[in-house]
C-alpha cells in the first residue's frame, strides 16, 4: 500500500517499555488519509509515547510506523518530510525570535529563502503573532509558544500534522483561528492527528477518534461509531473507568 491508498499513519504492534512500566503495548492503529483524527485517553494512557514513536522522536521497542505508506524508521528522511509535528511540554529554541523560529524550521526542511519568508509572514499573520514576530520566544506566553510551534509544524506544508494538545493554553480567539486553519488543511486533503483531553473539542473537530488506555487502543473508528449513541465523554468514561468516589468533606466549610 503506498501513496493515496495508504493510511496517513499506520501503527502496527508498537510497543515501548520504560523499566518496569509498559507505556505502549502492541498498539495497532490506522489513521486514514484526509481525516481529522482525535486520540483521547486518560493521563498516562500512552498517547504522548505513541505519538512520539509515530513521529520519529522515540524509537519503539517493537512494531512499525507507516506514513502514507513509507516506513518511518527505515526511511526516516522521506517519511519525516511528510510530517508536521507539535509535541507537548518540550522546549523550543527560545533564544530565537518568533519569526526566526519559523524560518529555522523552514530552512531545516530545505525550503529556499523566498518561500520561507513568504510563508513565515503568512503564518505569523494567520496565528495573530505578527506583533510578536521580533520578540524572543523565551518572552512568549504559553499560548503564544504553542502557536509558534504550530507555525513551525506547518511551514513546510506537510501532508500529515501530528499535534499533541495543540489548544492547551491558547485563548479562545486564537483557538478559533487554529480550528479554522486546521479545518482548511483537512479540506485540502491533509490529515490532522491531535491528542486532547477535551472531549467537547474532539467531538467538535474530529471525524474519527481513538480511545487509548493502558498503552492499547480500546476503541477506534468514526466519531459516531465510537460514541455509539452516547456522548464521547460518556463512552470515554465507560472505556477507561469513572472517577473514584471519595468524599472530601474537609473541603466544605460548613
Amino acid at each position: 500500500m503506498t501513496g493515496a491508498a495508504a493510511p496517513a499513519l499506520q501503527l502496527r504492534g508498537l510497543s515501548k517499555r520504560f523499566g518496569a512500566t509498559v507505556a505502549v503495548d502492541r498498539l495497532d492503529l490506522d489513521i486514514p488519509a484526509g481525516s481529522f483524527y482525535g486520540v483521547v485517553g486518560p493521563n498516562g494512557a500512552g498517547k504522548t509515547t505513541t505519538l512520539s514513536m509515530a513521529t520519529g522522536l522515540l524509537r519503539p521497542d517493537a512494531g512499525s510506523v507507516g506514513v502514507l505508506g513509507i516506513n518511518l524508521w527505515s526511511r526516516p528522511a522521506e517519511a519525516k518530510a511528510l510530517l508536521g509535528v507539535l509535541p507537548d511540554g518540550l522546549h523550543t529554541f527560545d533564544r530565537l525570535t518568533g519569526a526566526e523560529l519559523i524560518s529555522y524550521a523552514g530552512r531545516l526542511r530545505g525550503l529556499d529563502r523566498a518561500t520561507v519568508r513568504a510563508r513565515r509572514d503568512d503564518l505569523l499573520a494567520a496565528l495573530d503573532l505578527a506583533d510578536a514576530a521580533s520578540t524572543l520566544v523565551m518572552d512568549y506566553s504559553a499560548g503564544m509558544t504553542k502557536k509558534i510551534g504550530l507555525a513551525c509544524a506547518l511551514v513546510h506544508a506537510p501532508r500529515v500534522l501530528v499535534l499533541d494538545e495543540p489548544f492547551e493554553a491558547v485563548d479562545p480567539v486564537s483557538g478559533a483561528a487554529i480550528r479554522h486553519l486546521l479545518a482548511g488543511f483537512v479540506e485540502a486533503g491533509g490529515t490532522v492527528v491531535l491528542s486532547s483531553h477535551v472531549m467537547a473539542l474532539v467531538e467538535r473537530l474530529c471525524d474519527r477518534v481513538a480511545i487509548v488506555g493502558g498503552g492499547r487502543v480500546l476503541a477506534a473508528g468514526t466519531l459516531d461509531q465510537v460514541r455509539a449513541g452516547a456522548s464521547l465523554e460518556e463512552r470515554f468514561v465507560a472505556w477507561v473507568g469513572g472517577p473514584q468516589e471519595r468524599d472530601l468533606a474537609w473541603l466544605r466549610r460548613s
Partner: peptide, 14 residues
C-alpha cells in the same frame, strides 16, 4: 539543546 532537540530530529535525517 535539551528537549528542544525535537525540532532537529523531526525535521528529517539531518
Amino acid at each position: 539543546d535539551s528537549t528542544a532537540v525535537w525540532m532537529d530530529v523531526t525535521a528529517g535525517s539531518l
